[in-house]
Design a protein around this nucleic acid. Structure first.
Length: 471
DNA sequence: TAGCTCGTTGGACAA
DNA sequence: TTTGTCCAACGAGCT
């Protein structure tokens, strides 16, 4: 029996188009492993919804591996620090020849992976790392001066110029490796998932579900994505973010599928092109995290705003989290998040702007709450989104661009369908009154009055940022 | 090198 | 109701 190759699954929980897995199979029989890093995840804010989803995806992966006859081990490695010893022990026990895994980009993950690689090399074992969670590897999309991009649009132009769609076609699926093994006998239990609020049926795990959603999106919503994606009451988005975040879907699979359905998706405008842009945004933020370590350390991307003082207002924060701010669109979004582990992207921007501008509270608080609640929680995308909203991030969005949650509500949910869905106490109000219930006969008793005056808090935020940008 | 253009997602107000 | 202008400057990135 030849020595097995260890394949370490992380945020790449699928069998198809898996670079490390396919490379390992080419070298010999594979033994798959997943590490349960409970303590690490809890310390870094991975919440119960995300863990429960992760658990379902690992479960599907375990079943798929068993069907192919590939043995699979889940090891306890509570902290990232434990990864080298735990993996080395497994390699010793199995007499493994090499270790294969796909790269991750936040600083902690890179350090963990470097430590694992060093430990394996010291033991005389080969380590093979792959670019898999992004189409363009960090470091390959650079300016004419050889510097990393910090503005999205030129990054996108360069990314598209470098893209070779043929070379980026998905790799296919692994082959069976002997007779099927018995499927896992007991349900996998990761960390503390009992606090999960999102019903399991909302976000089924696994790559099969990811492919179903991808197909449905391409058949139904993609063509009108540019026009429809901003309306939270409409199913205009792909809802693929959780699957991309855990790697149940690869970006190559997503890109190949959209190009198959819309061959001109790399040029011009239109729904498919706009969706491809979102895939590029995902890559952009991963490159930022891979390149600028201070982002992984929690610092503002723009040094000018590193020391911006924020208001401390625990009661307002509690009201924001609970969806009790008195601004209907903000509250609807926060309640959608609490109930489903997901929030429509337009509404994410509205609630983030409200927290960081109108309430003038630290974006780190919002970032942490989102990571704790979101099924699709991803450090790079979440951090990038929050810093964009807070005007501390990579793009040049001016700080005086402050969303008005009432105007946004009137524009993007004109009939109030989304508001009524999540705010039953406002269900009886008509389409005119529901966006600002306090103006109409004092508003319903069960619903709070606005936490802040929008006009005054907007002016306060602009003055605050202006004073700090100058100093 | 210096000049030029541009920057995901907006709001308020005046005319 | 619609449209134009201002809100501030600045630095990224290209030519």
């Amino acid at each position: 029996m030849p020595s097995p190759q260890l394949v370490w699954f992380r945020q790449d929980l699928r069998l198809a188009d898996h670079r490390a897995l396919l490379a390992a199979q080419a070298a010999g029989p594979v033994h798959a492993v997943f590490l349960n890093a409970e303590a690490q995840w809890q310390r870094h804010g991975v919440g119960a919804n995300r863990l429960a989803f992760l658990e379902r995806c690992v479960q599907r992966l375990a079943e798929g591996l068993a069907a192919l006859g590939i043995p699979f081990t889940v090891l306890e490695a509570p902290r990232f620090l434990d990864a080298p010893s735990v993996l080395a022990a497994l390699a010793d026990r199995l007499g493994a020849e090499g270790l294969y895994f796909n790269n991750e980009y936040p600083l902690n993950e890179r350090r963990r992976d470097d430590a694992v690689e060093a430990a394996f090399r010291r033991a005389g074992r080969a380590v093979h790392r792959f670019t898999d969670s992004v189409i363009a590897a960090p470091g390959t999309v650079m300016t004419g001066q050889g510097a990393p991009y910090t503005v999205f649009t030129p990054f996108k132009r360069r990314w598209l110029a470098l893209l070779d769609p043929v070379a980026q076609r998905p790799l296919g699926t692994p082959r069976p490796q002997g007779a099927p093994l018995p499927p896992p006998t007991r349900a996998l239990q990761l960390a503390k998932t009992q606090g999960a609020a999102a019903p399991a049926g909302l976000w089924p795990g696994g790559e099969g579900e990811a492919q179903r959603r991808l197909d449905a999106f391409l058949a139904q919503a993609c063509a009108a994505y540019d026009a429809q994606r901003d309306f939270p009451a409409v199913t205009g988005t792909s809802t693929l973010s959780p699957y991309l975040a855990v790697g149940a879907l690869s970006p190559r699979q997503a890109l190949a599928a959209v190009l198959g359905a819309f061959p001109d998706a790399l040029e011009g405008a239109g729904g498919a092109a706009t969706w491809v842009s979102e895939l590029i945004w995902r890559e952009f933020y991963r490159h930022v995290v891979a390149t600028f370590d201070h982002v992984s350390r929690g610092e503002a991307f723009r040094p000018a705003f590193a020391d911006l003082p924020w208001r401390d207002d625990p009661e307002a924060l509690t009201a924001w989290k609970a969806g009790q701010t008195g601004l209907p669109l903000v509250d609807a979004g926060m309640r959608e998040l609490a109930a489903t582990g997901w929030m429509h992207n337009r509404v994410r921007m509205v609630v983030a702007m409200f927290l960081t501008k109108n309430l003038l509270m630290d974006w780190h608080l919002g970032e942490a709450h989102f990571l704790d609640q979101l099924v699709d929680g991803d450090f790079a995308a979440n951090n990038g989104g929050w810093q964009w909203s807070a005007a501390t991030g990579t793009d040049a969005a001016p700080y005086f661009r402050v969303f008005n949650p009432v105007t946004q509500s009137q524009r993007f949910d004109p009939e109030g369908h989304y508001l009524r869905k999540w705010l039953p106490e406002l269900a009886s109000l008509d389409a005119r009154a529901i966006h600002e219930p306090w103006r109409w006969a004092g508003g319903p008793r069960a619903y709070p009055r606005p936490l802040v005056d929008l006009k005054a808090s907007r002016a306060r935020a602009i003055a605050h940022f202006k004073a700090h940008a100058a100093g």
